[in-house]
Simulated scan of single mutants.
Amino acid sequence: MPPGAHAASLENVAAAFATNVWRRELFDGLVLASGKLRLAGCTVIYLDGSYVTGKPKPGDFDACWDPSGVDLAKLDPVFLEFGNGRAAQKAAFKGEFFPSTMLCADVGQAFVDFFQLDRFTGKQKGIISISLSADPLLLGKVQP
Rank of each mutant, 00 (worst) to 15 (best):
M1D: 05
M1I: 13
M1V: 06
P2W: 00
P3R: 00
P3T: 04
G4F: 07
A5W: 11
H6P: 07
A7P: 12
A8L: 09
A8P: 02
S9E: 14
L10G: 00
E11N: 08
A14I: 08
A15M: 11
A16Y: 00
A18L: 02
A18I: 00
T19W: 01
N20A: 06
N20M: 12
V21P: 02
W22Y: 14
W22F: 04
R24A: 06
R24K: 10
R24D: 10
L26Q: 15
F27P: 08
F27M: 05
G29V: 00
G29M: 11
L30W: 06
L32A: 03
L32E: 05
L32Q: 05
A33F: 11
S34W: 10
S34G: 13
L37G: 10
L39I: 03
L39H: 06
A40D: 01
A40H: 00
G41C: 13
C42E: 09
T43R: 15
T43Q: 15
V44G: 01
I45L: 01
Y46S: 01
D48Y: 03
D48Q: 02
G49Y: 03
S50N: 04
Y51F: 11
Y51W: 03
Y51S: 04
V52T: 04
K57N: 14
K57E: 12
K57Y: 15
G59H: 09
D62K: 08
A63R: 02
A63P: 09
A63M: 04
C64F: 07
W65G: 02
D66N: 04
S68V: 05
S68F: 05
G69A: 07
G69D: 08
G69E: 06
D71H: 05
A73L: 13
A73V: 07
K74N: 01
K74P: 03
L75I: 06
D76F: 02
D76L: 02
P77F: 13
P77N: 12
V78H: 00
V78T: 03
L80K: 15
L80Q: 13
E81W: 12
F82P: 07
F82E: 12
G83Y: 15
G83M: 14
G85D: 09
G85Y: 10
R86Y: 08
R86Q: 04
A88F: 06
A88I: 02
K90P: 00
A91H: 14
A91K: 15
A91T: 15
F93V: 01
F97D: 09
F98P: 01
P99T: 03
S100N: 09
T101E: 13
T101V: 11
T101R: 11
T101G: 13
T101K: 11
M102G: 04
M102C: 06
L103K: 06
L103W: 00
V107N: 14
V107C: 15
Q109G: 01
Q109E: 11
F111Q: 05
V112W: 12
V112E: 12
F114Q: 08
Q116H: 10
Q116E: 08
Q116I: 09
L117W: 07
D118G: 07
R119L: 04
R119W: 03
R119Y: 02
F120L: 13
F120H: 07
T121N: 09
G122Y: 05
K123F: 12
Q124K: 14
K125H: 02
I127F: 03
I128D: 00
S129Q: 06
I130S: 13
S131W: 06
S131G: 14
L132C: 04
D135M: 08
P136T: 10
P136K: 11
P136G: 01
L137N: 00
L138K: 00
L139T: 02
L139I: 09
Q143Y: 05
Q143H: 02
